[in-house]
Design a protein around this nucleic acid. Structure first.
Lengths: 310, 310
DNA sequence: TAATTAATACTCTAACTGAGCATAATGAGG
DNA sequence: CCTCATTATGCTCAGTTAGAGTATTAATTA
């Protein structure tokens, strides 16, 4: 039952990276070739581990240290988009957070707002109009084409869970589910049987937009129980800047006073003593992160009715 | 920056599986060779996707369908324990939940309680005595051997976060952190420089105990926001049986009345109408899961102060 | 019949969440 | 100088949730 693994026919390891930065309240992702590709490359044989290979390669390209790295997913499907079917490519994707951007305005690599790829994910100024105006109407026919009643009902439920009603209910974490639903419905150009008229949102080559969706979803889920947005902020910042950063990632507006209360309660930041007058109104105190807390914060909230140990 | 990935020298893809079942309130994991290995094997070339390869292979071995499958992690480290350093092995591990066990008492493969490998993870009857009696005392010298004060302080903090004080504070999700801490401190036999006297808990070959820790951690985290324990239960069950199942996974006792309240509120189950008298006391109603709810439950709880969309 | 075991129904309190009001401190424009 | 727009910050409030405990019901076993 456990024969020694024999070398498969032709296998290549490829690394894909979703590299995220923040500027001017926009969540940015590093892209290549006119925004159609995520940075990716072969896994250099000389590196002892995957992460070290990724770090070395990214830092050589961007000249900036990679703050936080997390593995996303491994694909090895034979019929993976972009594979020619003969050689098997194992694609291992990573999420990386970095504080500084590459030289601004560079063309290749280029930082782009991830909302260019997923315009329906930006609810910072209210429900994305795209959903009620375009997406839901076009998903309707797909639901109706579901065959028997049970299947139609399931499709309808998937639409409701993923996109809500387009106005109120919205779960910002379901980035991947939404993209996959649109893919399945043929509403993105990458789909095998794309509709003549896809939904707005810039496509990418191969399955890179899918990988990007995975990275955004992971990051949105993560910030709720671990303050990784640390890695994206400058050394000093105001609380409003921090709030705008989190909003950019989550794609949702937040209640200002409650946001401050939460940050305060958790002891995540400490005042530097200085304040800034860059904005128009009352000067805001500057803060820095208390890195010590990150370790302590490993404890996540529980949703089960645990009782105190006997 | 994006050369076509060239085949690395010698690469083999290997699948590792953490297969979980539940019997008699014990969380079981499928093992091979006297419990020293997780089932693993080469990725068969004929399968179009990783998951289909895994499913086919597991179902051929256990003769039972695999309910829920989730990718865990991909390792490709050159100096991975068990690798001979020449050939690079890409090891992709999966978590799988299954309802039925293999023929009871079989020797190979064999189901074993995962607490044989991680005895300190079982807090169902209160704090695991092992921690205060053995683990914390042995981690003390490791903290002291940390070199400069800063490093010692960091080690101390890691110990506190991972193991708490051994009595009250305990986060059941940190299975992997705890194992890695013990590994680093040389307190498990698998470590590169193992102490003469390791902490109790059965070791495994290669990095399989590490993979198992990853699977347990993932499962414990998952049950808090998605009712995957569905996949481990028989078609009908009492609420106490369900509670014991969740407790077995989480490794912690739960408050009976509140557990029922939570299950009830979420609408996860419906009474079958029948009841059972297998236990001694008052007969309990039998329930079954409402599978429809699983889809709806995709919505997870948020911990950020979201405001209603404008 | 009494003791035991388990199921189930409520209650209570502290903490947390989403929301909003009020006030303070600044620059811009008249 | 005065007013207004703008941002920061302090505080309150109601509804919900989480952890804990009390009480009652319905069966089995000694």
């Amino acid at each position: 039952m456990t024969p020694p693994p024999a070398p498969s026919d032709a296998v290549a390891i490829e690394l894909n990276a979703v590299l995220v930065a923040l500027t001017a309240n926009q969540p940015l992702v590093l892209t290549l070739e006119d925004g159609t590709l995520l940075p990716s490359g072969p896994f250099a044989t000389e590196h002892p581990t995957l992460q070290s290979g990724l770090r070395a390669w990214v830092e050589r390209q961007t000249h900036h240290p990679l703050g936080y790295v997390e593995q996303l997913y491994t694909f090895a499907d034979r019929n993976r988009p972009g594979s020619d079917g003969r050689q098997r490519i194992v694609s291992i994707s990573y999420l990386g957070l970095t504080r500084e951007r590459l030289s601004a305005g560079a063309r290749d690599p280029e930082w782009r707002s991830w909302y260019r790829y997923f315009p329906w994910e930006d609810w910072r100024t209210g429900p994305a109009p795209l959903i009620a105006e375009t997406i839901l109407p076009r998903l309707g026919p797909w639901v109706d084409a579901g065959g028997d009643a049970g299947n139609r009902r399931e499709r309808q439920q998937r639409v409701e869970v993923s996109f809500g009603d387009g106005r109120e209910t919205w779960n910002e974490d379901l980035v991947l589910q939404r993209y996959e639903l649109l893919y399945e419905a043929g509403l993105v150009p990458e789909a095998k049987h794309p509709a003549a008229d896809p939904v707005p949102g810039m496509p990418m080559r191969h399955d890179h937009r899918r990988i990007l969706a995975t990275g955004i979803a992971r990051l949105r889920a993560k910030i709720k129980y671990r303050p990784v947005f640390f890695e994206l902020m400058p050394p000093e910042f105001t609380l409003l800047q921090l709030q705008r950063a989190v909003e950019a990632l989550a794609g949702r507006p937040m209640h200002k006073q409650n946001f401050r209360r939460l940050i305060d309660q958790q002891g995540l930041v400490e005042p530097t003593g200085a304040s800034t007058t860059e904005a128009r109104g009352r000067p805001a105190k500057l803060f820095r992160f208390r890195r010590e807390v990150v370790l302590e914060r490993a404890a996540a909230g529980s949703k089960l009715p645990l009782s105190r140990p006997i």
